[in-house]
Design a protein around this nucleic acid. Structure first.
Lengths: 346, 346
DNA sequence: GTGAAAGCGCTAACAG
DNA sequence: CTGTTAGCGCTTTCAC
């Protein structure tokens, strides 16, 4: 720890005032006359005084810190979320505590506990499993301010998130409207109980009277570029007649795109590709990727607003509220044009 | 803040022991007999006791938290660093405090101050300007454990970082050895005084007896894909006869690659492209990108080791030590083969 | 074996 | 206007 930690007491001794007066002066209390304050501030500067937030937190019973629990910060969306959250919270005078659960429920539990020990004033959480959130529900029950960044409307916990079901529905419907009938879905997250995108996909098919074909569904274990490539290999081995593929995130879509490049499949002529999240590289891919836009600013902004309002709520603890932000589609080259039958894949 | 924050005192009252005994029992002191401990632990569980780290930090004079100051977390390398640091620190029982300076010196100063107020036990810092680190040097002078993640050997502050100069030298030399004589450099960071890569590039040219041509240097303001595209536009307007382009990071290289795709310039046939950092998308780009590998695990591992050894150093405060990790090249399609004169660009 | 008392650095209530 | 006192929840002597 640092060497010369000047304390209020030291300033008090040097200036001859009491600790209390020094404290008030430094915090700009109107009760302290200007001349007194001047002396004190001057001495504080000279002694390089920095208030001890730890001591302050102990007495104030607030740390002005908020925990952010991510599943995996290398996911570009989560990275951007982390950035946006940190930026906005620091603007509001909060520090951000980060942790990643690495998609493991027990780790998620552990980091939440760590944050509680450190008395984070509240938490923003991407639960690794959308269905298993009892431990989070319990936090809420103890009046701990917590806001989920994914979640379904009847989770019983506050949440602000993208309406993934609606996004998947929109994207699939767009492909259908473009003339596609055989639309594959490369889906990751199923093993974690995250079925929103799959649901949206099925709903869109149903709405268009297209039967759901399990052969068109590839469940990917991971969600990075490599997995997308692998999923396309799987798919192309199945003779499905797919003319379009909808990927549950952009990294998968980029992997699918790369597969097409390698195999000489022309996108979008032979195969249309639709991504999800609209990460930066989606726009700048070899073939610019159509994607479902994740409005990070909007979502993080609302989530922060909510968690802070919970922190400031005294007695009147409000009922849980789930805010779904409906995403827009971003259409680019990878799905350009109307579909003309000439499938190359499967 | 949470409702029912059970304290040692509460457990003491319920069990009839003193606060002290409870504290010792919960921390597994051998001075407490098993039966006593059993009772206390049981009650603690029942009351859902969670130790208050804030109070503990105040008396222990250590917070078991380490600050990580990044310039910009959306930079994929920094994201990966953040991930690696958080993972390793949590393994060691530390929490990671994040902040981004957004490449602004005054913001950097501010976040460092914030971390000090919060009594972070130490800090890892990517300074936004490699040359202006007086404020950091001052920290060190006050025996504050701080390790830079970039920096030159004579900064007077501990540092663990990639040897960017050596990396740039290697990459440029590789291009020269492949037959290139007109090698452009798309360089970002110059305005922040970060000249290591430029230096390495020049050294390699000099070593091969190739004169440095300022026309081949494009200074990019930003470092994302868009800037790489723009830099290529600039370059192609200059009639330089470049046959290869070395980019100071992979996003720029990806932008350059996209420019080539759009303009029908074949990579590597018409133009070789070399990136820097070896981010995930470099490998999976339309044309897989050659790059200078940033060994994140190694660098963050050593940096953490160093900062923790500084934290644990009592009286014998060691002299600053700078560790340069020499990077390897990763050669992929974008620089494949020997150069055959047929420039298309400029 | 266990408890009482002091103190970490700060804020807040209350005197004067 | 300023100082005194108490206390935040914990650890650490030091008695008993």
């Amino acid at each position: 720890m640092a060497k010369s930690a000047a304390r209020l007491k030291d300033i008090a001794q040097q200036t001859g005032f009491s600790v209390n007066t020094v404290s008030l002066a430094l915090r700009g209390s109107p009760r302290i006359p200007d001349e007194t304050r001047r002396q004190i501030v001057e001495m504080a500067d000279k002694m390089n005084y920095l208030p001890n937030q730890v001591a302050k937190s102990l007495v104030m019973k607030e740390t002005r810190s908020i925990g952010l629990v991510l599943t995996d910060i290398t996911n570009p969306v989560l990275t951007a979320v982390a950035q946006a959250v940190e930026l906005e919270l620091s603007r509001l005078g909060y520090i951000t505590l980060f942790a990643t659960s690495n998609n493991q429920l027990d780790l998620e539990r552990k980091v939440i506990e760590t944050f509680r020990q450190r008395r984070a004033d509240g938490m923003l959480i991407f639960p690794c499993n959308h269905r298993q959130i009892d431990h989070i529900r319990k936090l809420r029950a103890r009046n701990y301010p917590v806001v989920l960044l994914v979640g379904d409307p009847d989770a019983g916990v506050d949440a602000v998130c993208m309406d993934e079901r609606a996004g998947a529905f929109k994207a699939t419907t767009y492909l259908i409207d473009s003339g596609h009938r055989r639309i594959a879905l490369i889906h990751s997250g199923g093993e974690n109980g995250n079925f929103e995108k799959l649901d949206g996909y099925k709903m869109a098919l149903a709405a268009a009277g297209i039967p759901f074909d399990p052969d068109l569904l590839v469940a990917s274990r991971g969600h990075d570029v490599r997995n997308g490539f692998g999923a396309m290999e799987t798919l192309s081995g199945r003779t499905t007649g797919a003319t379009a593929v909808f990927c549950s995130n952009d990294s998968l879509a980029l992997g699918a795109l790369r597969f097409c490049t390698v195999r000489g499949i022309s996108v979008p002529r032979d195969l249309a590709i639709f991504g999800f999240d609209n990460i930066e590289f989606a726009e700048h891919a070899a073939t610019a990727l159509s994607s479902v836009n994740y409005d990070i600013e909007a979502i993080t902004g609302l989530a922060i607003e909510r968690v802070i309002s919970l922190i400031n709520a005294k007695a009147e603890w409000p009922a849980p509220r789930v805010t779904l932000v409906e995403p827009d589609l971003v259409i680019r080259e990878s799905t350009a044009g109307q579909w003309r039958p000439a499938s190359r894949i499967g």
